[in-house]
């Protein structure tokens, strides 16, 4: 039984007006506990609508969402519970920061959960450290921090709620390569340490390829495919036809295969590609590059 399960989930915008549009259409999906899932798709493919259903921000037009086996719209209490079981970090989360100090901003979520002061204090300090925000920054105004630091504080604000499922919508948008790396690493670290289920929405297939074990591809309000990273990358051609960019390295491998080089076709990271090439060469030349 998956931790997230959707049954015929459909959401229609502006029902009864000329602008009526199905944002997601009959989604049946099951995401297993402890996965790190990358979600890709065009703007308007329905991926943002989908994730906003997981914590009850949007109510389905029809169909059901089950979190840990329970329908989140069964009662008011179960909807509220879903808010805490599923942590959602929006795009550009630093724009939601409002408190006077970093400490209080991270504490906002835990406070709303009604935790004790001690528990809040423990969680705030713990998550701050996890995202690389040092002790002395905690009493500073969050508005004085750098862009990357603000982003990490905002993510910490959700992590401190210790959700079993953590969803991040484009957590690296607008950051430089170093900032991107930092954010993705801390998410990976959090995933490893807590064993929670993580969903990352991203436009960067390169990033997804390096970090996710599974990939969900959304296209035209439907699930195009959901599976292990390697399996999804086997369909790289179809994915590029959709207009999504597959990593450069995958395109190179595909071209080499077209030209008759016999190598595996689920290569999507530079590191992996390097190993494959070296293996290929050493087999060809008898162990020269081991």
């Amino acid at each position: 039984m998956g931790i997230i399960k959707t049954e015929n989930l459909t959401y229609t915008y502006s029902v009864g007006t000329p602008f009526e549009k199905k944002a997601i259409d009959n989604i049946n999906l099951e995401i297993e506990e402890g996965e790190l899932v990358g979600i890709i798709g065009h703007t308007g493919s329905g991926k943002s609508t989908l994730i906003q259903h997981f914590n009850g921000l949007l109510k389905p037009t029809s169909g059901r969402i089950l979190i840990e086996g329970e329908d989140i719209w069964k009662s008011k209490a179960s909807t509220r519970q879903a808010r805490f079981t599923v942590g959602l970090v929006f795009q550009y989360p630093e724009y939601q920061i409002f408190e006077e100090t970093v400490y209080r901003d991270i504490a906002f979520g835990p406070k709303n959960m009604g935790l004790t002061e001690d528990e809040i204090d423990y969680r705030v300090r713990n998550t701050a450290t996890a995202v690389g925000i040092s002790e002395e920054l905690l009493q500073r105004s969050p508005f004085e921090l750098s862009g990357g630091q603000k982003r990490r504080v905002a993510i910490a604000g959700v992590m401190a709620m210790e959700p079993k499922i953590l969803i991040l919508d484009e957590p690296t948008a607008g950051l430089d390569p170093k900032g991107r790396e930092k954010i993705l690493n801390l998410i990976k670290e959090h995933h490893k340490k807590t064993g929670c289920t993580v969903l990352i929405v991203s436009h960067s297939m390169e990033d997804i390829a390096r970090y996710a074990n599974k990939i969900l591809v959304m296209n035209k309000s439907k699930v195009f495919c959901y599976g292990k990273t390697a399996e999804v990358f086997k369909r790289a051609n179809e994915i590029s036809e959709m207009g999504l960019t597959v990593p450069q390295i995958t395109r190179v491998i595909n071209e080499l295969k077209n030209r008759g080089i016999n190598i595996e076709d689920e290569i999507y990271t530079v590191k992996y590609a390097k190993e494959i090439f070296l293996k290929y060469l050493s087999e060809k030349e008898g162990g020269a590059y081991d």
Binding site: Q52, N55, L57, R83, F84, G87, L88, V89, F90, P93, Y95, Q96, F108, G109, N112, M113, G157, V158, M161
Partner: peptide, 16 residues
């Protein structure tokens, strides 16, 4: 639009 987004974000943090 921005107000809408901020509201959703704070709701996700348990604001009521």
């Amino acid at each position: 639009e921005e107000t809408d987004k901020i509201m959703s974000a704070q709701k996700a943090r348990g604001a009521d």
